[in-house]
């Protein structure tokens, strides 16, 4: 128990440090890049729920981000709603759409479901581009008001950072906790063995749809954050390529842990900044990187870290384990 408290304290300290340091010592440019990464991080958490917990490859994230983004843009521009109402509206709208779409698409299993989400992204992009009255088409919608709560209005990139930081943290905590709930276990069961799951009383279809809705709500949140962060939304943001990049982000860092997803999002967003001279080859590196990753580190950087720390703990007998069953048998096994 003591160790758990220490662990929590360390995490809180790191987060607090980040919250203070990033906006104060970084340049305006770096904060802007970090803000962009945080927007995508929230969407990638949806991939964490779908793929990491539930084992379903879905490319629909970007579409639900789009739905959330346009909902937020319309609510704030046309109805003049404050930020919090926009966010809530986006999440509910994206969630409802996810319920309807998920109920249809999840009748397909495995790879065929994956493909149907690709089709969804294409249809949605067509709609986003052509429904000009609601989306502004390829020219997009500009002049979307910044983040605000009450009379406080986010004017600078640093202000935006605080909003995004809080939203990202809350979403991450929710997703982290979700893994240990009964829903998280049902998802793991669906991922590992659908038949065994059914015999354990898990409604496989329903569990999948619920995961899809959660991912949809997170994506909706991400989309809403996006428009208020950039004050602009255009249909070219919601293309299939962007969806693959997000899946790659999540996989690189470690798709089954919010921390891993964070690592991946940061690395992929920062990489083009660090490797400016190699701009031309950057997507080639992504591709090759992903292929190698799948062979050598399917659980991503976070998975690798977990393996190493488990080995370390094992080596120095730091793990406390609960023994179940007779003591005699265990001593037998020790030999």
């Amino acid at each position: 128990m003591k160790r758990r408290i220490i662990k929590i304290l360390v995490v809180v300290a790191i987060l607090a440090l980040a919250a203070v340091l990033v906006p104060t010592i970084s340049s305006h440019y770096v904060i802007t890049v970090v803000n962009g990464a945080l927007v995508f991080y929230v969407g990638c958490l949806g991939i964490c729920v779908m793929l990491g917990y539930g084992g379903m490859v879905s490319f629909a994230t970007i579409t639900f981000m789009g739905l959330g983004a346009y909902m937020s843009a319309n609510l704030s521009l046309k109805a003049g709603m404050p930020f919090l109402v926009c966010v809530l509206g986006s999440m509910i709208f994206a969630g409802l759409c996810a319920l309807i779409i998920g109920a249809i698409l999840l009748r397909l299993s495995g790879t065929f479901f994956t493909f149907s989400t690709v089709a969804l992204v294409l249809i949605a992009h067509d709609l986003f581009t052509n429904l000009r009255s609601l989306t502004g088409g390829p020219d997009g919608m500009g002049g979307i008001p910044p983040f605000n709560i009450g009379s406080f209005v986010a004017d600078t990139a640093a202000d935006n950072f605080y909003f995004l930081f809080v939203a990202g943290l809350l979403a991450a905590l929710f997703v982290h906790r979700l893994k240990y709930t009964n829903l998280g276990r049902r998802l793991a069961a669906v991922r590992d063995n659908e038949i065994a799951a059914a015999t354990m009383g898990v409604d496989v279809y329903r569990t999948k749809v619920v995961a899809f809705i959660i991912a949809g709500v997170l994506s909706g949140l991400s989309g809403s954050l996006m428009v208020h962060n950039y004050h602009f939304v255009g249909s070219s943001s919601f293309v299939f390529d962007q969806s693959t990049t997000m899946v790659i982000m999540a996989m690189l860092g470690g798709v089954s842990h919010p921390g891993g997803v964070f690592l991946g999002t940061m690395i992929i967003t920062m990489l083009p900044e660090w490797l400016k001279p190699l701009q031309e080859y950057i997507r080639l590196f992504y591709g090759l990187g992903v292929m190698l990753l799948m062979v050598f580190m399917p659980t991503g950087l976070w998975g690798l870290g977990e393996q190493l720390s488990a080995r370390f703990k094992e080596r120095f007998h730091l793990t406390r384990k609960t023994l179940i069953g007779s003591d005699d048998a265990s001593s037998e096994e020790m030999i």
């Binding site: 384990k321 609960t322 023994l323 179940i324 069953g325 007779s326 003591d327 096994e333």
Partner: peptide, 11 residues
Amino acid sequence: TRVADFSFYLE
């Protein structure tokens, strides 16, 4: 587990 006479660590 005792009835089945074996043992394991839960984690």
